[in-house]
């Protein structure tokens, strides 16, 4: 559904942020995009949406080149930026002005989403808090029925109940013909929501694997002592939280934070496992 081939990108030509980055995304998945600050999470998402132009490389999003910014593709993309601006009008006025651009916009679904997010329909955008505005553009974006959903730190600014509502909404928003990619550094918010992890580090994709594949190959568990088999470990109350190769077909729960740190520090040990 989405293919990136040998993407080279940098905000200035001398210092590239991505070098020969290649990746494929397919429908029916929620991808979690992780990376350190400055690793280029937002930038990769902007590349996918055609908001920035790469130095070289080929991109195919739903059969289009996003850099051309064609309406046929734009109406199939729902992009939720981290920072955004909404005009000072009422919700219905906003929807009336914008919904018509999306041929599949579903007004009933939009009303349901607003209800779920506890946003009164007649409200003025200017009276809304950042979190409420964010919920509004998420609701609007999903109601467009866009095939490709891109979200940059969507849970930033949401309060605790809203985060739960968000997870419920995203769980129901994933359909077989939809591809969702979410960047986050608050992994706990989205822990169980993502089914494939994409980790950016050192100008490229350091890891891209489904949760199933990761837990088939690695085991996350508490150990008392560190030995040679352990790939990465962090001290905890009762010994260590460790990542070990999954020799015995154990089923364990993916610990995203642990995996994240393991990928950053133990690249050499992990690479052979995932190739």
């Amino acid at each position: 559904m989405i293919t990136i081939n040998n993407l080279n990108f940098g905000y200035n030509k001398k210092k590239l942020l991505f070098k020969d980055l290649s990746m494929q995304l397919s429908a029916g998945h929620i991808y979690g995009l992780l990376g350190k600050n400055g690793a280029g999470k937002s930038t990769l998402l902007k590349n996918l949406a055609g908001l920035v132009y790469a130095q070289s490389g080929k991109m195919d999003v739903l059969g289009f080149d996003p850099a051309k910014r064609q309406p046929a593709l734009l109406s199939q993309i729902c992009f939720i930026p981290e920072e955004f601006y909404l005009p000072a009008v009422k919700i219905d006025a906003y929807v009336k002005a914008n919904a018509a651009f999306y041929p599949n916009f579903d007004h009933t679904y939009f009303a349901n989403l607003l209800a779920e997010f506890d946003i009164p329909a007649g409200q003025k955008l200017i009276d809304m808090s950042y979190g409420q505005k964010k919920k509004l553009i998420i609701a609007f974006g999903l109601a467009t029925q866009a095939k490709f959903v891109i979200m940059d730190e969507p849970t930033n600014g949401l309060d605790i109940p809203s985060k739960a509502q968000f997870r419920k909404i995203m769980a129901s928003a994933l359909t077989e013909d939809r591809c969702i990619i979410i960047s986050t550094h608050q992994v706990r918010d989205l822990d169980n929501l993502i089914d494939t992890v994409i980790m950016l580090d050192e100008n490229s994709v350091a890891l891209k694997a489904s949760v199933e594949e990761i837990t088939n190959k690695l085991c996350f568990k508490r150990v008392k002592e560190i030995d040679d088999t352990i790939i990465y470990a962090e001290p905890s109350l009762s010994g260590y939280n460790a990542v070990v190769p999954n020799f015995h077909d154990e089923d364990s729960k993916l610990d995203l934070e642990l995996l994240f740190n393991a990928v950053l520090t133990q690249k050499n040990k992990l690479k052979p496992i995932f190739n």
Binding site: L51, L74, P81, F84, F101
Partner: peptide, 8 residues
């Protein structure tokens, strides 16, 4: 961002 993403 919002303006550039409008499908026109």
């Amino acid at each position: 961002i919002i303006d550039l993403m409008i499908p026109a």
